[in-house]
Design a protein around this nucleic acid. Sequence first.
RNA 1: GCCCGCGUGGUGGAAUGGUAGACACAGGGGACUUAAAAUCCCCAGGCUUCAGGCCGUGCCGGUUCGAGUCCGGCCGCGGGUACCA
Length: 859
Amino acid sequence: MSRYAAAEIEAKWQAAWDKADIFRATRTADRPKYYVLEMFPYPSGRIHMGHVRNYTMGDVIARYKMSTGHNVLHPMGWDAFGMPAENAAMASGGHPKDWTYANIADMRDQMKPLGLSIDWTREFATCDPEYYGQQQALFLDFLEKGLVYRKEAVVNWDPVDMTVLANEQVENGRGWRSGAVVERRELTQWFFRISDFAGDLLDALDGLENWPAKVRLMQENWIGRSRGLQFAFSLIDGPDGHDRIEVYTTRPDTLNGASFIGVSPDHPLARQLEKDNADLAAFNAECRRMGTSEEELEKAEKRGFDTGLRVRHPFDNAWELPVYVANFILMDYGTGAIFGCPAHDQRDLDFARKYELPVTSTFEPETPGEPYTRPEDGGTAFVPPKTEKVRYVRGVAGDEVQTGDQAIDAAIDFCEARGVGQGVTKYRLRDWGLSRQRYWGCPIPVVHCEACGVVPEKKENLPIQLPYDEGGTPIDFSVPGNPLDRHPTWRDCACPACGAPAKRETDTMDTFVDSSWYYARFTAPRAETPTVMEDAEYWMNVDQYIGGIEHAILHLLYSRFFARAMHICGHLPGKSREPFDALFTQGMVTHEIYQTRDDKGRPVYHLPDEVEGGALKATGEPVEVIPSAKMSKSKKNVVDPATIIATYGADTARWFVLSDSPPERDVEWTEAGAEAAHKHLTRVHRIVSEIAQSAEGEETAEDEALLREMHKTIHEVTGGVESFGFNAAIAKLYAFTNTLAKSRAGTGAKRQAARALVQLMSPMTPHLSEELWSMLDGAGLVAQASWPVADAAMLVDETITLPVQINGKRRGEISVPRDMDKAEVEKTALAADAVVKALEGAQPKKVIVVPGRIVNVVI
RNA sequence: GCCCGCGUGGUGGAAUGGUAGACACAGGGGACUUAAAAUCCCCAGGCUUCAGGCCGUGCCGGUUCGAGUCCGGCCGCGGGUACCA
């Protein structure tokens, strides 16, 4: 009897699949298409267990769909632009391009042994000129349709590295790499007009029924719709060009509690005033220096600068309010100006107390008599939920007692009728700035011409390729700044409009652009246009998208925007305005952390490989075990998929990452678990090969029981695979393996059962299944066999066991024919020993019979 | 702060309002073996006066013939998010 030799089997069947070319996706009308996609990886150089879990799940779906008669598209590519490649070049020399392509080759080599059903002919990397050239074409189309534009924007500027930093890259006001104090600079940047789509992107979330509710909610909050009133206060003796201050409020019902006006330090009025006021200029400069991190904002004191200016209240010409410049007001939300209502906003109240401004309640709790201290009497700001009824003492419109929502609507109507502003809907979502002052990204295909200004590059000149060297020598990344800026010749070009010498744009695109349309490119990866409508029409949408929850907002929102924009430019059909029909977010792979301490008491981490039985293998020194956490290089709690595959085989790794936890939750990698998975596969191999080799025998009385169990297993595993219940499906497969191992059924029935087992396992353990399938004389490849169908008649037993409860507590059970009618079941239940004993001759009050489920006797 | 999710044996977890703990890990006992490995069989929520009984899905209450599941209020943990006017 041959042992389970995973390495041999896996190589053999991967070669067989390759030879038969069964994973190549080709358009055809004779089968329904199914597009399954996992979020493509960044080519860091090593695959990790998270990748294994992600791609295995996608592979299970892809293989299952293939065996249910679908024409499956299951592609793979590389999200290959980005900072790590440049950082690697800066740290250790070399070129980002070489680093990236070498990593891609390494990772492909690590991925292939997993036996994924991927159509590798469609593979591409976003740093391929063939890909980013089409991205540049998209950009030009977007430009033509007004979907992308340039504007001045404030950015975090690192003066040492000479680059713009994202907010996440600023730590305590300093650049994360250079440690230099970050400056706020105004730069002209490119923006996508995503905010024009805010309402649509929000409303359309309702239609994404097969997305996790959590992700939809996160996007909803991110887009952040609010309804309010926009109106103006008239300014008394304002500087030239400033006779009013426009404000936005979601609480117009508190207008009679207004106490001051606040404007952002970046507000045009503040900028005008600082020209003649050195103190204000200093105040504003200090505000602008302040970081934007959460931590800093938390600590930052709410500070204001009294401009001395006054405005008139819109309801009362005689009522004047002071105008402050305040450090907590953002220029890019609303109008950059607010009215402060200290009674109903804690921040405004703190501000009012600090600068001794009036506090005026406009409403109070509805129920009198409850202990309540008004904010003007030293209480905290009164901010009840808007759905709660309150008593208006200085309301704007409507009843004295009403909910905040009602009062807000009434106030908007009232103000509109008086010509005081209008009701508006605003969104938190802002336009997406895509300019990056980096080398390793997709060049923005425009030209700056002295005569013509900003001119789009001609499409026939695409792709605008990144230069590899500068005048013969490879680009030196150890010099700070953007290499494209200082390149001797790359910038030089002819103006596409007038032909005069001009300069290229040196900004490149945010890498989120690259991943916002790759799913569409997979439908026609070698086309001379971004997409081909016929292919997009056929393959789109992605039927099942799988990836990490960390992309719940940015990547998925940007992709939804891009799909809309591509539709507008004729690159995607209307149905693909929402590109992902179903989304699944899987959990992480975690592992314990092993740590010792050095002589100074600092933690030293150790790889799981170096630890055995709670001590270091090398020295025997005991290790501290820290509970499971996400695998990370810095904590060394990583297991390398390559090692696992070498030790146990890919099927074991695949089986284990699916087995122990529900796919949306984290799964803890344990040596014991991996070993158990491997033991089980070895056992299946042994049991099935024994059955395959045993001689034909008589039918036995146990045949039917085994086949019934087989059909139940088919039913449950199918349901599990279809609903991402992989762990439950695997539990059922374990149970069925036990049944099969113990069964005394005849060889014929056992073969049938073994064939079903092997086939049901095949999406998870494709290699082992092929091997056993061939032993069992299955025709062709199991990968191409039709999925087994459960016989409904075999799913229900002739005789069933019903639990009998007395007053809801289980007291016994009865065995009855499946289709016995309710009255008979009741009779049988009442005759059961436990019931007779409990009733002591009395009549039950009530008997509930749930057919096929349970009987409950109420006494 | 606000929004969302989750609390089930020693552990991971299973359970359309209907037998709580499937399946697996770790554990205990046994068979085979000179021995070990491998394999196979059995036990296993807690308490108990043990052919039985009582308790039990974070805590308190409710709805129901029946609640891990539904509702209300707490407690704890996890995630998201915020000077958003």
